[in-house]
């Protein structure tokens, strides 16, 4: 077969090859994002995502969306502008969460025996779906960044509340009040994570009484808008084909 001949002999074969190619690319994309996004999120969100006694109403709400909107924005840039596929955010977040569950179950529980109810990952799926749909409906990076980024930040805390609320039930323990999540952190010894490392309930947001979570979520949403822009451009840049030499030219 010469270079000028087609590799396939019929339309049916072309479709079959195309689908095979789809699955190969999907698998590669999924695992590459899983690895890269996982490392990124663990380095930037880390303990806030690892432990229930870090999942507070101020910093977790603020930090987690900001550092997790990164890969969704970049992957969206590639999949939408090159293929019109509105699944970049969802596929990124699903890959991340599958990686996290593998890590939490096999390492945190299977290897070091932390109960899963102290080290389950945060739920990022609601924000990701909304981000994808806004990009699909609006076909605009700016609209997705502003509306989608804000929604991504706002949906994070309520999207996780059904999971963490039972662990915020108070308990009296040897004369002190704490939540069950605090008690988990105290009971299940983390030799390398002393209590003072825990960054929870810190800051100057004291004028909103007990209702600081919505304010934190709004702030997180605003910063997520900026991060979305930044990473969307990263995604566009990395999705270029300038890196591949064109021998034919």
């Amino acid at each position: 077969m010469s270079a000028s001949q087609s590799a396939v002999r019929s339309r049916a074969e072309a479709v079959q090859v195309s689908r095979t190619f789809d699955w190969m690319i999907l698998f590669t994309l999924f695992t590459a994002v899983l690895g890269g996004y996982h490392i990124h999120y663990m380095l930037t969100g880390g303990d806030w995502d690892f432990w229930t006694d870090w999942k507070d109403r101020r910093l977790w709400v603020t930090v987690a969306p900001i550092v997790s909107i990164t890969f969704p924005a970049a992957v969206q840039a590639c999949l939408w502008w090159r293929y019109r596929l509105p699944v970049g955010a969802t596929i990124s977040v699903v890959a991340l969460m599958i990686g996290e569950w593998i890590n939490r179950y096999l390492n945190f529980w299977g290897w070091t025996y932390f109960p899963v109810n102290i080290c389950f990952p945060s739920n990022l799926i609601p924000g990701a779906i909304v981000l994808d749909v806004i990009l699909m409906l609006g076909n605009s990076m700016t609209l997705t960044a502003v509306v989608g980024g804000l929604a991504y930040g706002l949906l994070f805390y309520p999207g996780n509340w059904p999971v963490i609320a039972p662990l915020h039930v108070p308990v009296e323990y040897n004369g002190m009040m704490m939540t069950l999540a605090d008690l988990q952190g105290y009971h299940y010894v983390r030799t390398g994570t002393p209590e003072y490392i825990r960054m929870v309930e810190k800051g100057t947001l004291r004028t909103f009484g007990k209702d600081v979570a919505p304010v934190s979520a709004f702030f997180s949403g605003f910063v997520s808008i900026i991060i979305y822009f930044l990473w969307h451009f990263f995604g566009r840049w990395f999705a270029k084909t300038d890196f591949i030499s064109d021998d034919a030219s």
Partner: peptide
């Protein structure tokens, strides 16, 4: 789900530090 969770767990407190 947030509403139903609040109904199920009416008493919750922030993390203590």
């Amino acid at each position: 789900s947030m509403g139903s969770t609040n109904d199920k767990y009416p008493v919750t407190t922030p993390l203590q530090a």
